[in-house]
């Protein structure tokens, strides 16, 4: 299968310092590709460029062969690109249900006049979104708190809420920035299962995660960044044995985890 997301020679500099420098790789439909690397390696910056929040200073991003470099995020969403954030970006005043409902925004018809007058088209959109959102909340086991405000929820719950909101878009490619950070072992296992399930349904997944056990277990392919550069790439086992990767990021501890996960 050909690549859905194709990144070539992508780079950006902040005040002369290259945060990401000439990174290339590709993600195919249904494939889980992980980006790993030490703190400050440029993983989130890479996501911000792909999702249209930062304008790259070099290189290209292609989706289905189409050049989408520096396209407006809301137009990228239309093309099926969805993401979550490392430091939560939720709508705190809205209920969990509403948070996921806005994820359906593109399938709703948000026209201000019908919405002001609560015409049946508007009410139908709202009802359909609510039904879908409730199903998604069930999927991330947050349906019990559906009518609570997001700000009242625990960190682990909010991490899952963000995934549910991103899934509401029915994306073709999903970018997850540290979805398991700050989650306990049970929650991590759940997120692991969810990601695998989503990928199995044909969605391409680009994952940034520090939990090496999780990464090694579910990734088909791993890209390693260090100081903005790609220093290695390949299957989990390959990457785990790469001496450069071990030196820059994994260390002995990481390698043990990897070998453990393989068994």
């Amino acid at each position: 299968m050909s690549a859905l997301l194709d990144i070539s020679d992508l780079g950006i500099a902040f005040g002369g310092i290259k945060a990401v420098d000439g990174v290339s790789f590709a993600v195919r439909p249904g494939e889980i590709v992980s980006v790993i690397g030490p703190n400050g390696a440029g993983k989130t910056t890479l996501f911000n460029m792909i999702s249209g929040l930062y304008r790259p200073s070099q290189g290209q991003v292609r989706l289905d062969g189409r050049d989408i470099t520096a396209m407006e995020p809301h137009l990228l969403a239309r093309l099926g690109l969805s993401r979550t954030f490392q430091n939560l970006q939720l709508f705190g005043d809205m209920t969990l249900l509403e948070n996921v409902m806005v994820g359906h925004h593109l399938r709703e018809r948000a026209h201000v006049l019908p919405d002001l007058f609560a015409l049946s088209s508007s009410r139908r959109s709202t009802r359909a979104s609510a039904d879908n959102a409730l199903a998604l909340l069930r999927r991330v086991r947050l349906d019990k708190g559906a009518y609570r405000e997001a700000r009242a929820m625990s960190y682990g719950a909010l991490k899952r809420l963000e995934i549910a909101r991103a899934l509401a878009l029915e994306p073709r490619i999903l970018l997850l920035d540290e979805p398991a950070a700050g989650c306990n072992a049970v929650e991590t296992a759940e997120i692991d299962e969810l990601i695998a399930e989503v990928a199995a349904s044909g969605v391409a997944i680009l994952l940034v995660e520090h939990d090496m056990k999780l990464v090694m277990k579910i990734s088909a392919h791993i890209v390693v960044l260090d100081h903005g550069r790609k220093i290695a790439e390949g299957a989990p086992a390959e990457v785990a044995r790469d001496p450069q990767v071990i030196a820059a990021y994994l260390g002995q501890h990481g390698q043990d985890q990897v070998l453990h996960a393989e068994r």
Binding site: F91, D93, M94, G103, A118, A166
Partner: peptide
């Protein structure tokens, strides 16, 4: 009416986080 409508939710969302609102397709 607006509060609980697609437009109202989009407005409240961009109020909460403009970045997140953009990435879920809100103009």
């Amino acid at each position: 009416n607006l509060f609980d409508s697609p437009t109202g939710r989009a407005l409240r969302a961009l109020h909460g986080s403009e970045v997140a609102a953009r990435t879920i397709g809100i103009d």
